[in-house]
Design a protein around this nucleic acid. Structure first.
Lengths: 153, 153
DNA sequence: ATAAATAAGGACAAAAATATCCTTAATTAC
DNA sequence: GTAATTAAGGATATTTTTGTCCTTATTTAT
């Protein structure tokens, strides 16, 4: 559904929301380790999410890292898609037709429409905080327990 | 949601289902023109769909081209995804976690699950024939009316 | 002030997806 | 059987996505 970059973004933000705060900032190292994403690529993605402090914040230096404010935690998950420039995936035509709309629907339009509406609803109403809380409660998980790269540079 | 290749595949198959028959085979030229896809890339995709006569059939030579049998028209739309090797998109974790399942759900799992079920249901129950019939009935459209490439070789 | 830790950012590399071109094979019309 | 038409298939090119590496800037601790 989404690109790898966006998948990593979603996982990273949820992780930061759960573990990070101004008093406890999280390093790229920890984040990429926890969510199972390539370290340097993740760094790039976090830069995008930090741009204009849209989703996350960061500081350099010792004890530096990434964190979120309460306000940012209240953002809908959709805000992450928007920051990653993949918000359109929720509403685009499933056959990729630019011309598809209510007046000139593609053959899948009517039936797929209901699903799109639910997708948008889901990403719009669920907040980053809610997802983080599920992890706190132990009812949801994001960690890769599996195989790690042997050596990382 | 799907790759461009799969979007083209869906459109091409629906078009062939509507217009093609053993008596009236459709050329790549016509297909790519009608669905607004790059000619040679579309040719590759049609080769994949024709492999083992899974979705479509073809013959070379004058009056040759692509067509479908009634049996193939009865296939669920999902068969196209399977042929294009993108069937997994319907059921994968929205965060891209291989470990995500009922026992170790990701934070989006429970709510996204319902949408996945509907997606699978949609692609499994709707047949290629049904989509073609909507186009016949004039209640659905696939054509690009828009700008075409100036010169095509 | 200096050293250490950390993200920022640029340049580059690798892989995958998308797209084009050319030659070959099959079929049909004549 | 020859020429014309069409898909098959291989090789290559281009673009996008994914990923790595190195240097710089910022902050903190000493």
């Amino acid at each position: 559904m989404f690109s790898k970059a966006t998948e990593y973004a979603l996982r990273a933000v949820i992780y930061i929301a759960q573990k990070g705060s101004p008093e406890n900032k999280i390093s790229i190292e920890e984040i990429s380790g926890a969510i199972g994403s390539p370290r340097s690529f993740t760094a790039k993605i976090l830069q995008i999410l930090r741009k204009d402090n849209r989703i996350i914040q960061s500081v350099t230096g010792p004890q530096g890292g990434f964190y979120m404010t309460e306000q940012h935690r209240k953002l809908p998950v959709r805000a992450i898609l928007t920051a990653m420039n993949e918000d359109h995936i929720l509403s685009k035509c499933v056959l990729g037709l630019h011309t598809c709309n209510e007046l000139k629907p593609c053959p899948m339009h009517a039936s797929y429409k209901k699903i799109k509406e639910q997708l948008i609803q889901l990403f719009e109403t669920r907040t980053i905080a809610q997802l983080a809380h599920e992890m706190d409660a132990g009812t949801a998980f994001i960690k890769f327990l599996g195989k790690k790269k042997e050596k990382r540079k």
